[in-house]
Design a protein around this nucleic acid. Structure first.
Lengths: 356, 356
DNA sequence: GTTGGTAATGGAAACGGTTCCCGATAATTA
DNA sequence: TAATTATCGGGAACCGTTTCCATTACCAAC
């Protein structure tokens, strides 16, 4: 807290050599007398000298830092993603500069667009080597034009990888996920289990994820049962949204046989609402959801859900980003794994229709 | 991705002035002709020039970046903390450099000490203005000596704030939490509800948090009931640990009347284990826990738990850190709020003894 | 004994900004 | 009109590191 950091210059004078020589030993470059090298190395070691990465950054024009802009790190889906990304990045010697754009107090829409845009600006100023975007305005069906211009301006200067469905006209790398497919899978599973009257619950309207999943649901419903807009109840991605949504179904006497929940949190909220009205999942209402949050296997009932294979996503995203930065050979970018269905209790037993 | 970033030099030549003049308008310094200032500003704006913070860092010797070393960002407790910290830091114009030291795949103990130490090194090299430590080796009852020396060496060069119980001999700022008190509160609540045979479940042995909470539990038990070591079952902080722990109680026919769980995840696991054996919480076993994870209010049963007021913690931690960096006046550091008991369903109804 | 090649070393420029210092011009005052 | 003072703008040093280049010394071969 007091003693200032040493500089290469001081090391040089301690060792009685020039700065260039010290630099050569720091970087294992040739052309330095073995004896001298050993001596200098010793001085470095026991003085605890650490070269300034920011000075290095000046000359190399790279910081070995990746920017991560995440909409809500509190969402288990993103938490897992960030955690995996951090692990992969660290493997390649990169650190993460983290920006969380939805303020902690869950102050939705407190001009998150502006927050994201200033995050972009910060990242450029701090000269990160690349940026990863997870959720946020990019997921809007029609993102704010200011956002798009800010994004493109940034993407013009440094590599940007976005974990989201591609947005037309935005020139970045996208890591798509099989949103529609996962909704199809979960809906199909419920249909195959004998449920007909299946509702769709949760998700903010006009968000790409919602739209994709909804259309997967819709596709399956129209082909194998009946699709009705009355069975679709959107709101948001949080547990309270599932709770309120389910309550609405109950209050309006429109309780469906089964529900496709936009994610595990919403499913949890819905289940709790059922319990509060002496209804049971899966006996009264079966539920299937997406996103495979870590605790879902311990809920009562255990959640039937879709695993999106986050680790793969993280791998792909970071690898894409690093190759875009022109990194030395990165292991080949893995192809994304398809979502897999995890059948547990909340959807009832296959082919065992709900009790009448 | 292609066009290189502009430099102040280029702006200067575009505007036909010297670099110093551009710098003056960038920093709102005096001694530049208003007309010229306006013109230069215009060029800056429409060229999208952004001064390099790393070059600035060189001269100012500060980066406006805070390092965060967190043991497991996947743990909801830490997630919430990081999220809050990010919000506070951003308010003061700081970004976060994030290091997650327990690798994503939950590879416990894969030499996390070494990972933490290299994180320290990275942070120093990257010249962050201060470091925040959340969990990890520092929580060990007897931390690895290598870790301690690395920590002290770092703390010698830059401000470090640790969200943990103070460790003797380590010269850093600590933000203590009322771990013992919270365990006392939850135990007291169970005792007041009429339970006598109360077990303690979860938490890694030899971790400060575990020890503190355990001693709170022990204190209340010895004074108001009977303390027996057989009622203490430690393991870890995850949901599976709660599950296995509860199973052990069941398998060995030592099912207690009530349980103090180390956190909400463990509580969830325990509840699920009960359900799997046709036992109910709270009817057969009441459960109280700590940490107030966001979803606890939607579990079945809703979790009785302790709120540690994370937002306050984040505020205190960041404020302490920023004042330590010698920041311009920071709002006074708030005094930590005491933990509060949240009574919900899992502990049964107060004064209503468990059914026989 | 001159030449040539190579290893070891130091000096200096460069990276992109900020800031101090100083000279030049314009404005004010004697 | 001359002297003094503000105001403005340019040059240069500096932050910590790398790298290019020049210098010296050494050794071998002709």
């Amino acid at each position: 807290m007091d003693k200032k950091q040493l500089t290469i210059k001081e090391i040089a004078s301690m060792a009685g050599v020039s700065v260039s020589t010290v630099s050569r030993v720091l970087n294992n470059k040739a052309h330095v007398n073995p004896a001298k090298r050993k001596k200098i190395q010793a001085i470095i070691d026991q003085s605890g000298f650490q070269p300034s990465m920011i000075a290095r950054g000046m000359v190399y024009q790279r910081t070995n830092t990746l920017g991560v802009v995440v909409s809500d790190i509190t969402n288990p889906y993103f938490t897992a993603l960030v955690s995996n990304i951090e692990a992969v990045a660290e493997d390649f010697g990169f650190s993460l500069l983290l920006f969380n754009t939805m303020t902690a107090g869950h102050t939705h829409q407190k001009d998150t667009v502006q927050i994201e845009i200033t995050a972009f600006r910060n990242l450029q100023e701090k000269k990160v080597d690349g940026v990863l975007i997870l959720g946020g305005e990019i997921d809007q069906a029609t993102p704010d034009p200011h956002y798009i211009t800010a994004l493109e301006q940034m993407a013009h200067h440094l590599p940007v990888v976005i974990v989201a469905q591609p947005v037309k006209g935005v020139d970045c790398e996208f890591v798509p996920r099989y949103q529609q497919m996962s909704a199809e899978m979960i809906t199909e599973h419920l249909l195959a289990s004998g449920y007909k009257n299946i509702a769709f619950l949760g998700g903010q309207p006009d968000i790409t994820i919602t739209n994709e999943r909804l259309s997967g649901y819709r596709k399956m419903m129209t082909t194998y049962a009946d699709y009705s807009a009355k069975n679709v109840l959107l709101s948001d991605y949080y547990v309270e949204d599932g709770y309120q949504g389910m309550r609405h179904f109950i209050d309006t006497q429109q309780v469906p046989e089964a529900i496709v929940a936009i994610n595990d949190q919403v499913a949890l909220g819905a289940i709790r609402a059922l319990n509060d009205h002496q209804l049971s999942c899966p006996d009264d209402v079966a539920i299937g959801s997406c996103d495979a949050f870590p605790n879902g296997n311990y809920f009562t009932p255990r959640l039937t859900t879709i695993d999106h294979h986050n680790e793969d996503l993280a791998n792909i995203a970071v690898n894409k980003l690093l190759t875009a930065t022109g990194q030395e050979k990165i292991p080949p970018i893995p192809t994304p794994a398809l979502p897999t269905l995890i059948i547990r209790e909340s959807s009832g037993h296959p082919l065992k229709k709900k009790k009448e």
